[in-house]
Design a protein around this nucleic acid. Structure first.
Length: 555
RNA sequence: GCGCCCGUAGCUCAGUUGGAUAGAGCGGCAGACUCCGGAUCUGCAGGCCGAAGGUUCGAGUCCUUUCGGGCGCGCCA
């Protein structure tokens, strides 16, 4: 849980920039230190001199030279600091640091990569939150992969992160679900073809559910219900909820909390929220309905919060839900919504403003569509007819690891084609196995060493100076980058950065493997390489854990 | 019509929150140590980053316009 190397370098650069007197402390911009694309430019690079030169009235290269000379190399674990063309300051990590870092990795083990960046701040990530009216689709699957990974990332960065699923267990949709099930039950009892409401749920799953209800119980439920949907709704919602929950668990996703919309109504939270909104002075009546003046708060029109019928709108209970989140003490709330809800972002943010919550309190991520294809042909998905590939179908067809990895290879907001044929292939055509294979390969080397009776020396005994080939050094550099990638993936809410990082670690490992042997070389060199390989194993394992993918020892 | 997302190699997508010579996987072609796992590795071919302007030392990245694709615009949830 120490400071990442990038943080230490940032600080050293910052201090050097201050000492150069280019600008007063207050005017110093955020220092950007990053890994250059080309290794010729060192391990880290900064552009401060170019950013400050205009204001300081000095030539970029002169200023760069001045700052570079003032960087405390020892404090930042640097061996070389050079300036280049337009005014870059390029830095190279010291050999000592790279060696020491291997020891750090093995010592910190599963903690390597973690930080206390978040300072224990309570944050909430809400995702999936699909209506309990049917099986989860693949967009929910994608959202689940993203949300779960984000929670893992935020925890690793020192946030007190909680996952939550909002269960939409009241309202029109639930009623329609009940009526649809009722029709299926009547059908199952042989009373003719099911009379499912037009807007109801036509999927086969409700017929299946109806079929599971024993005859006696079905008759009893029909008696109870009369013309209403009540009992069928409750029954169906509970069963759908359970099915969603177990499907997600099979996908490796467990929620800290399942929050029921109905609990807001029964506790009077919705009316209470309306009262709070009225106090803001932004509620007015028109056409017998109550409106919230969200225009002017970033929305493009006002929204109804209470219908002329007296019923609260879904929007109002959603506001009540977010008010509840705020009152639970979350300093930040991240909602992950499907693409069909992107139009709701402005109104929800407007509501947060109406309640005078901090401007950046609510963050909404939109997960984009997933198009399933087999080779080049799209898989037809008709939600209306209830015929679509579900989360559970996906898991049983391609497996959890594969599905999660595929979802997390892409940016959250990009539309993605999920090739089921490719995902199913257990061959080199499938990108998923590349990283896992690296882990299995390393495990296998260690196992081979054990079987050969090789004793592992202690960390202090290993002579890491012997790791000198370009491939070895490349691995060491790659491993040193991990904490910074974790931090960046968390800060930008972009878990795909971890996937891409892991791929480059795997590449470095595979290249090293083909270039040199571990077991069977000279004793001291072998011991040093064993340390290297164990460090790779730790980092890959930690990284895969962040995206919820297993790290197999054998494949 | 208004709003959001996307447009990068033949295909699917990355691109380190404005950096230096734009990358990976798949597909194509040509190769790899009698030895720790060939689900790997090496090399070649493939690009005006949809288009046009602008901002600046510097743009795939930011702004404007435009073209194309997807999705939203209810007193539904």
């Amino acid at each position: 849980m120490r400071k990442s190397i990038a943080d230490r370098i940032r600080e050293a650069v910052r201090e050097a920039a201050l000492k150069s007197g280019a600008v007063p402390e207050g005017e110093l911009p955020q220092i950007v230190v990053e890994k250059p694309r080309s290794p010729e430019h060192g391990d880290f690079s900064t552009n401060v001199a170019m950013l400050l030169s205009a204001r300081a009235g000095r030539r970029p290269e002169d200023l760069a030279a001045d700052i570079a000379a003032r960087i405390d190399k020892a404090a930042a674990s640097l061996s070389d600091v050079e300036i280049q063309k337009p005014g870059f300051i390029n830095m190279r990590l010291s050999r000592d640091f790279l060696e020491e870092n291997l020891r750090v990795i093995l010592t910190e083990a599963e903690d390597y990569g973690k930080s206390d960046f978040g300072g224990g701040e309570p944050v909430q990530v809400e995702f999936v939150s699909a209506n309990p009216t049917g099986p989860l689709n693949v967009v929910s699957a994608r959202a689940a992969a993203v949300g779960d990974s984000l929670v893992r990332l935020m925890k690793a960065c020192g946030y007190d992160a909680r996952s939550e699923f909002f269960v939409n267990d009241s309202g029109t949709q639930v009623e329609l679900l009940g009526l649809s099930l009722k029709a299926r039950v009547e059908e199952a009892l042989g009373r003719g073809e099911a009379k499912i409401p037009d807007q109801g749920y036509h999927g086969q799953y409700l017929a299946d559910l109806a079929g599971e209800i024993p005859r006696e119980k079905a008759l009893e439920m029909l008696d109870d219900a009369g013309e209403t949907s009540g009992r069928f709704s409750r029954f169906a919602v509970e069963r759908m909820h359970e099915a969603q929950k177990s499907g997600l668990e099979a996908f490796g996703v467990r929620f800290d909390q399942w929050f029921r919309e109905s609990s807001l109504h029964t506790a009077g939270r919705v009316e209470e929220t309306l009262k709070a909104l009225r106090q803001s002075g932004l509620v007015y009546e028109k056409d017998g309905a109550l409106w919230l003046k969200t225009s002017g708060l970033g929305d493009d029109g006002d929204r109804v919060v209470r219908k002329s019928s007296g019923e609260p709108t879904y929007f109002l209970s959603d506001i009540a839900y977010h008010k509840n989140k705020f009152e639970r003490g979350f300093k930040k709330v991240i909602d992950i919504w499907g693409p069909d809800h992107h139009g709701h972002v402005p109104r929800m943010k407007a509501a947060a403003r109406a309640l005078r919550y901090p401007e950046d309190w609510l963050e909404v991520l939109i997960v984009q569509w997933v198009r399933l294809v087999r080779g080049t042909t799209p898989v037809s998905m008709s939600k209306r007819a209830g015929e679509f590939v579900t989360l559970s179908d996906l898991v049983s067809e391609v497996g959890t690891d594969c599905a999660r990895f595929f979802f997390l290879m892409r940016r959250v907001e990009s539309h993605l084609d999920f090739d089921l044929d490719l995902a199913k292939k257990q061959s080199d055509e499938n990108p998923v196995y590349y990283v896992q294979y690296a882990h299995a390969r390393v495990s296998s080397i260690l196992e081979f060493a054990r079987e050969a009776g090789v004793g592992f020396c202690t960390l202090g005994e290993a002579d890491l100076k012997l790791l000198q080939t370009p491939e070895e050094v490349a691995v060491m550099r790659e491993l040193a980058n991990f904490p910074e990638y974790v931090r960046a993936a968390c800060a930008t809410r972009e878990p795909q950065r971890i996937t891409s990082y892991l791929t480059s670690v795997a590449t470095a490992l595979h290249q090293f493997y083909h270039h040199s042997r571990v077991v069977g070389t000279e004793q001291n060199l072998m011991q040093a390489r064993l340390v290297l390989v164990r460090a790779v194993r730790t980092v890959i394992r930690n990284g895969l854990d962040l995206i919820g993918v297993s790290a197999p020892d054998k494949m």
